[in-house]
């Protein structure tokens, strides 16, 4: 229950934070701390210093660009996302996920940027961010980089954020007309750890799928986009029968392992079940 020795640093601006992260050996970002603190208690992480960004105003907030892109500060909490009427209107999937995350207390502290930067296989947001074509703005000494989700997530507990860098902003493009996003997961108990997770986005025009994203979480080290499933969805009429596209998963080499909750084989099978359900739910939502 105790943390290892470490230094606490509180920068005032994103630039200060980047300077600290560059200059102080072994420093890491402390955002909401809802995972990091526990990793420290359990001796699973060993940083020398924590750079606390949760009070930096520039890293918080929810805005919409002129084109409808949702611009979210990385240190914006789940609670803020969940209660934002604008987010609920423009990107309901983002708000819904925030509203259901973990528990009341954690939603008040945990941040969307923290969830993405952790990139734990069971994390909620990474697969959604991939499905929504989110872009990540990463600040470093030499300025800002802007990365698509496909380049941001790099494997279990790994992202493109390098040493001395800070995720500042997540940009989520506007949802195309007629688009439906569904997130389905199988969890331990009613609402605990994810055993399998699938996010599907279907952009439907005139009853036909114009574009699609199918992404798995929980089974792989990183959110896994399923191009073959997407190919089978695109151009088809948006009916519940589309769920059969999930058959394509059987040809995907699934990298996953046994863990305390289930075997790898079960997790693979459940990924497919969740994918089917997500496709059906996305169809339903898109038609609405």
């Amino acid at each position: 229950m105790l943390l290892p020795p470490l230094r606490y640093l509180r920068p005032e601006t994103p630039e200060d934070a980047v300077a600290m992260l560059s200059d102080v050996d072994g420093s890491v970002v402390l955002a909401g701390g809802q995972t990091l603190m526990n990793m420290l208690k359990l001796d699973l992480a060993h940083p020398d210093a924590l750079v606390d960004v949760h009070r930096i105003d520039a890293l918080r907030g929810i805005e919409h660009d002129a084109d409808g892109t949702l611009v979210v500060g990385a240190a914006t909490t789940y609670a803020e996302l969940a209660r934002s009427p604008e987010v609920r209107r423009s990107h309901p999937a983002v708000a819904e996920m925030a509203a259901g995350l973990v528990d009341r207390q954690v939603r008040n502290r945990g941040t969307i940027g923290g969830n993405c930067c952790l990139n734990d296989p069971t994390s909620n947001y990474p697969p959604l961010m991939v499905a929504l074509d989110a872009r990540f703005r990463v600040l470093g000494r030499d300025g800002e980089r802007r990365l698509p989700a496909s380049e941001f997530f790099r494997g279990t507990l790994a992202t493109a954020v390098g040493r001395g860098e800070l995720l500042t902003t997540i940009e989520i493009p506007p949802m195309p007309q007629g688009s439906g996003v569904a997130h389905e997961h199988l969890q331990v108990g009613a609402d605990s750890w994810a055993i399998a997770r699938a996010v599907v986005r279907l952009d439907v025009a005139d009853g036909v799928v114009a574009d699609a994203r199918a992404v798995l979480g929980a089974v792989y080290g990183s959110p896994l986009r399923l191009p073959e499933v997407e190919r089978r969805l695109i151009g088809q009429r948006a009916t519940p029968d589309l769920a059969e596209a999930a058959d394509a998963l059987q040809d995907v080499d699934v990298q996953t392992a046994d863990d305390v909750h289930c075997s790898a084989a079960y997790r693979r099978e459940m990924a497919e079940v969740q994918l089917r359900r997500a496709i059906r739910a996305a169809v339903e939502r898109s038609v609405q």
């Binding site: 229950m1 701390g33 603190m37 207390q105 008040n108 502290r109």
Partner: peptide, 19 residues
């Protein structure tokens, strides 16, 4: 360990005293 911090409900085991 739940407390309120500036009116917001949090778990005090995931917050540093210095914060």
């Amino acid at each position: 360990c739940t407390v309120r911090w500036n009116g917001t409900l949090v778990k005090s085991c995931m917050v540093l005293a210095v914060q």
